[in-house]
């Protein structure tokens, strides 16, 4: 099933069931929030915070467990998307953990963010 359909139909609930709640722990020792923020820079090429439409799933403010499980499932091809399977394979599990945590904590009213 595709991620978008999946989001629409299940709001990622079935992924969340399997997900473990991640406590706020940095991904790797030495990795700062600045590093992680920068790692998410390319995500917003499509999943921008200020989306002009709802064509791409909103990732900012989504529970970290959902993002993490989705990314890991794409990475292992358990979940088939279109391009996300190819992109997820470029990141380590600890990077995915850290990015998920970061994105989850950076929601905010659309008007507050000019660039995302």
């Amino acid at each position: 099933m595709h991620f978008r359909q999946l989001l629409r139909r299940h709001s990622l609930r079935f992924l969340a069931v399997a997900a473990v709640t991640i406590n706020a722990v940095p991904a790797q020792s030495g990795e700062s929030v600045a590093d992680i923020a920068l790692l998410t820079a390319s995500c917003s090429g499509c999943h921008a915070k200020n989306l002009p439409n709802d064509d791409f799933p909103q990732i900012y403010g989504r529970p970290a467990s959902e993002i993490r499980e989705a990314m890991l499932a794409y990475r292992s091809d358990e979940l088939s998307g279109t391009v996300m399977n190819r992109i997820a394979k470029g990141y380590s599990e600890s990077e995915i953990d850290a990015m998920a945590q970061y994105l989850a904590e950076h929601a905010g009213p659309k008007s507050e963010d000019l660039a995302n």
């Binding site: 700062s32 929030v33 600045a34 923020a37 920068l38 915070k49 900012y60 970061y102 507050e112 660039a115």
Partner: peptide, 20 residues
């Protein structure tokens, strides 16, 4: 992190990335 951020409109990831 102790950065002072003055713009509420700053993109959050950029802001955090420069605020280390």
């Amino acid at each position: 992190t102790t950065a002072v951020v003055t713009s509420a409109s700053a993109a959050s990831w950029v802001w955090a990335a420069s605020a280390q």
